[in-house]
Amino acid sequence: MVRYEILGSLEVIHEGRICTPTPPKVRTVLALLVMRANRVVLVDSIIRELWGDDPARSAVTTVQTYIYHLRKLFAKEGIETPDRTVLESRARGYLLRVEPGQLDAEVFETMLDQGRSHIESDRPEEGAEVLRRALAMWTGPVGANVTFGPALEAHAIHLQEQWIRALELRIQADITLGRHRELIGELRYLVGTYPLNEWFHRQLIVALSRSGRRGEALQAYHHLRRVLSEELGLDPSPDLQRLQREVLAAGGPLRPGLARAS
């Protein structure tokens, strides 16, 4: 079965062989077809992705040439056969036929939904495990070896937001399971990578406090306050300010967590 991977470098894998096209613009066309799998991608959309608002007069012919190269590659690698058409010509565009399980981004989003469902059903252990496997599918930035135009950029942003949501849900499940100490290193990395994401800061403060490191939890809060003030001229949200007061008081919802973490 052929697999299309986009959660990292774009790769086409068939029977253990990597069959990804080499020419950059052909890769971009393939990435657009993969991102919009089982939907018609108009020739006009491909032209806009490749050349923006200033295409050459030969743009339509050039797109047809790129599609020809993809079909030739698929035929050579046995992805497309006389009995099985994968890349279909449609009115004013093209469609890449992808079956369930062939596209890693689709599998990832299915697993994200499963993980969310487990957590909402009060099964955090199962949710954390599914989400851990989903996140492990990512090998780098979306389409790392592809030059993006506006449509691919929008798809990449969507998938990146889904990655962050999966990460948040997995961390939420791990905190519910009392894995506060194990999370501290990861959360320190995340607040450094996403300094304006208050959710990650909040979980770091909670994890430190529930691990008996109240002084470090307060330092983490003051670091967030400084970052928000310097970057945006803002104070932490009311929820974060309330959390700071709870850490100072060493009571409220943090106290049970401190006992569990011991």
Results as ranks from 00 to 15, higher is better:
R214H: 12
G233K: 00
Y221T: 05
R213M: 13
P236V: 04
G212P: 11
V227A: 04
L204A: 00
V227S: 04
G212I: 14
L218T: 04
L228S: 05
P238Y: 06
A207G: 05
L208Y: 00
P236I: 00
G233Q: 05
L208M: 08
L234R: 14
V227N: 03
V206Y: 00
G233S: 05
L228P: 09
L208T: 02
P238S: 02
Q203K: 07
E216H: 09
F200K: 01
R214E: 14
P238Q: 04
G233F: 00
R202F: 01
F200C: 00
A220C: 09
L234F: 13
R210K: 11
Q203E: 14
R210F: 05
R226Q: 06
H222Q: 08
G233H: 03
A220P: 12
H223Q: 06
V206S: 08
S209E: 11
D235P: 10
G212H: 08
D239I: 15
L208G: 01
L234Q: 10
E230W: 07
L234P: 11
R225M: 13
L218C: 04
D239T: 14
Q219G: 11
H222M: 12
Q219I: 12
E231Q: 13
G233M: 03
L204I: 01
A220N: 00
V206A: 04
D239M: 11
R213D: 14
V227C: 02
D239L: 13
G233P: 14
L204P: 00
I205R: 04
L228K: 04
D239H: 15
G212K: 04
D239K: 15
L232V: 06
E216D: 14
E230Q: 13
L218E: 08
P238K: 04
L228A: 03
Y221I: 05
P236S: 02
S237H: 06
P238V: 00
R213N: 10
Q203W: 07
L208F: 03
D235Q: 11
Q219A: 13
F200Y: 10
S229A: 15
G215S: 13
Y221A: 03
L234D: 08
R213Y: 13
I205Q: 06
R225H: 15
E231V: 15
R210L: 10
R214K: 10
R202H: 02
L234H: 14
E231K: 15
E231P: 14
Y221K: 05
D235K: 11
L208E: 03
A217G: 11
L224E: 05
S237Y: 03
V206D: 02
P238D: 07
I205E: 00
F200N: 04
R214D: 15
V227E: 06
S229E: 15
S237L: 09
R213F: 13
L232S: 04
R210H: 07
L232D: 05
R226V: 07
G233D: 05
Y221F: 15
A207V: 07
A207E: 02
G233R: 09
E216P: 12
H222I: 06
A217T: 02
H201V: 00
